[in-house]
Design a protein around this nucleic acid. Structure first.
Lengths: 205, 205
DNA sequence: GTCTATAACGTGATAGAC
DNA sequence: GTCTATCACGTTATAGAC
């Protein structure tokens, strides 16, 4: 792995120095995070209020704010939860594949992961949007590195600008996932394979 | 054109039966629309309140609601404004190109249009997100049709599923534009050409 | 016809009850 | 340690002044 870890690192960075939390606390936090994921997936970030979270959990707003410092803290926790699941899943798949097939593995698992967890996908999309920090390439760099390694493993010249190639592939993945979110009948696996085929054709040119 | 018209048609549909509006009214509306575009581009849909629009225009909230029926009506007007500009621009470029080169023209003008108007791009993105109506393929169908026509003009078999191909290209365009919004130095023209090269390679396979 | 002042509501966060 | 009642603010929309 290592590639995707960087993605997560940005989020996890400030959180060093956590106090140990009780079992009931941990359970409540987990419950609230799950509820928040569902609500954000359904209504979006801005439309998800503390009141709606509290109501879904059967408690009051203040109780939510006892377990989390602020609304943003709840959102950040929910985002971190789905992001770490994504990183672990895709990272493992990429690491298990030989370097020259890592890009295909990345595309397949990324699409598969999101298709299997529509709620997570929607949360990640929402987070991507509402995250107004200028992410200096954090989005495309991991994939660009995987693509470069694959080319090296095949003994090819570095062809198209890796940044642009990673952006194109990443954007295509987003579009395929987005289509699945709107139409549950859309065949994402076939979409992923089409994208991989295009990528192979472009890499050999 | 005709392809992109459909995109706009959805939005424009209900608005038949408009009463003629006075000059000052039209001017105010235009002013408010421009202001709204700027604010939405800067802060996003949810964070753009009537108060912020009114303040930027130097009037009160109520005055805004005299010219538009509701906050959503202001937003819809702003969206319609940027969308019609996009449709007119890209549509003209596509129509001017021979069928076999229409996809390339589409990509170039789409990217160019957005790169030249970052505010418009951001508004379109925001609208895409907050538009929770299930758009039955409205997003990819125009491009899919252009791609199919190009293949026909070249006497090629219909290869990859046109829906998937359109989704991939559309997603790639979004990613290229998104990158430009975050990094003004990113060379979108080069990105567009890379995408077109990939598309050509895939079409010939 | 154009706009200002006011109202009714929902929000995130706090102070304090248990 | 856990949660409820309360607060101050910003929101959209309306009623009414000019």
């Amino acid at each position: 792995m290592g590639y995707l870890r960087r993605m997560a690192a940005r989020r996890a960075a400030p959180g060093t120095g956590e106090k140990p939390l009780s079992f009931i606390e941990q359970a409540r936090r987990g419950q609230l995070i799950e509820i928040t994921i569902g609500l954000v997936a359904e209504r979006g970030y801005a439309a998800t209020s503390l009141a709606s979270i509290a109501q879904a959990a059967g408690i009051t707003k203040g109780a939510v704010l006892y377990h989390f410092a602020s609304k943003d803290a709840v959102m950040a926790a929910a985002h971190a939860h789905v992001l770490s699941a994504l990183v672990a899943d895709v990272g493992a798949a990429v690491d298990a594949a030989p370097a020259d097939q890592a890009p295909a593995a990345y595309v397949r698992r990324m699409v598969g992961h999101m298709a299997d967890r529509p709620d997570h996908a929607r949360v990640l999309i929402e987070a991507m949007i509402n995250d107004d920090r200028p992410d200096s390439g954090a989005r495309w760099k991991p994939l660009a590195a995987i693509l470069q390694d694959a080319r090296k493993a095949r003994g090819q010249d570095p062809g198209t600008d890796p940044r642009t190639l990673a952006l194109i592939v990443g954007g295509a993945i987003d579009a395929i996932i987005g289509e699945r979110l709107q139409d549950a009948d859309y065949d994402v696996e076939a979409g992923a394979e089409s994208l991989i085929a295009m990528l192979e054709a472009a890499t050999f040119a």
